[in-house]
Design a protein around this nucleic acid. Structure first.
Lengths: 251, 251
DNA sequence: TCGAAAATGTGTGGCAATTCACAGAGAACA
DNA sequence: TGTTCTCTGTGAATTGCCACACATTTTCGA
């Protein structure tokens, strides 16, 4: 059982396939490797395939007219991405870039369609994936409209906890390393503002920075300050395995 | 052939069903009427059904902590809405309000699931619907991040043209009546700012206001000023009938 | 382990956008 | 036809955020 095969099985979307189907899917797909910083696809590329990330991390972003990078999603191993072009004109509309050196599986769109037709649960799974991501995007939209940079940042921290949060003695640690610039690119702000606001939150005792990592010491209070219900940590959640370990979350 | 039956057939999602299936779907659904301003659902409602709007118009929005209304979508006759809760915990997260008196069909979630299982093209149709709406939301997110109110408003005007645009001798008319407050609620700005920016655009000769309606006299120039490609008008588009006349567009 | 490159911290001025406040215009109702 | 209510227009005061500039710290590859 070689590596890509393993990852096919690991992706909940495909876990119910018969061994023959998995083998076929594997045969028709190809493994690709990308160096850190290289582009996996760019706008106007034909979107004839779906990508399954096996190792590394990928960011999906858009470049505005003034050259600013609007970060739309972070993809972790086991997650499917680039699936939107399947149902919408077949063209990419953003950049996908490897943040570390990454390996991924390129699955032809036709394979997915075949599977969806023959396998109702795959079809349902894809729909659910689209739905969960849409929900996530909509939440993000809400967290941006009418909100100050402080509120946006707090919302973002909650999203990050939701996806990467780990309980530690000191509080909830966000298990992913993002620069202030990255955070700014997600909430549509500037690097300097993020630095300042994070500094304020630290001064207020809501969080602390340990070895380049953000630890929320007052998560509940923070959440309530922007009237959100505190997020559940992934480690706490034994309940919701539907699409995949990480594939449900997109930020 | 009564009214709701007609609308079932009109919704492209269901157009391929056999008469028996349509009849069954009709029998299990119920027609509801809502007066202008009344709420169709509110957050934390159970999302056990999908709504198909037959007459009137519906707005979907979120209320922020400070009481501001973030407008997420406008629904027109023939469009399906409230479908997100199907795949995501089954809870509503926003308000749906009738803008005019509206009649709609409430379709139980179980019916949709049954159809999706037995009818691959329904399943595919739902997925495509989710995908198109997700694309739309993502575009909106991009048009918000890092952009001034002027740019946001121009982007919004282009979206409105895309959905409601009509060619007239004077230019492209936006065939929908939205107050400045509504526009502000979409782009996350204030009523006053929208008034001012619209005034500027009028002074620059980019648009004019005729009988409470916006007419873009320089659509292409406007689009290029925010580096977009000018939208195609719905009247020009004979090409893309997939989901439904309006269901593809969500703004 | 050192040196370059990347990331963070801080201040200052400027401007875009919000807030508040009120006046006029249009639509809706009797 | 007036009365009321919702919309639109405009101005002044205020502020939150950005742009720019620079110092300091951390990271990471050679």
């Amino acid at each position: 059982m070689d590596e890509k095969f393993w990852y096919l099985k690991n992706c909940t979307l495909f876990e119910r396939l018969t061994p023959e189907q998995t083998a076929r899917l594997e045969k028709r797909s190809q493994v690709k490797k990308f160096a850190r910083g290289s582009l996996i696809y760019v706008p106007s590329d034909a979107g004839e395939s779906v990508l399954l990330l096996t190792t590394g991390r990928v960011k999906i972003y858009h470049i505005t007219g003034e050259g600013k990078q609007a970060l739309l999603a972070l993809i972790d191993p086991g997650e499917l991405f680039g699936e939107l072009a399947l149902f919408d004109g077949g063209q990419r509309e953003e950049f996908a870039e490897a943040m570390d050196s990454a390996t991924l599986l390129r699955i032809p769109a036709t394979e997915i369609f075949d599977l969806m037709e023959s396998h109702p649960e795959v079809s349902l799974g894809v729909t659910r994936l689209m739905g969960l991501r849409r929900r996530r995007i909509e939440r993000r939209l809400k967290s941006l409209l009418f909100r100050s940079n402080r509120e946006r940042l707090i919302h973002l921290l909650m999203e990050l906890v939701d996806k990467y949060g780990r309980r530690t003695p000191e509080g909830v640690e966000i298990g992913v390393k993002l620069s202030h610039q990255d955070l700014a690119n997600i909430i549509g702000s500037t690097r300097e503002t993020v630095t300042v606001v994070l500094g304020e939150l630290k001064a207020e005792g809501s969080l602390l920075i340990k070895r380049r990592q953000i630890v929320l010491t007052q998560m509940d209070r923070l959440a309530r300050s922007v009237d959100m219900s505190p997020p559940t940590l992934p480690s706490d959640a034994a309940a919701n395995r539907t699409i995949g370990p990480a594939a449900q979350r997109s930020f």
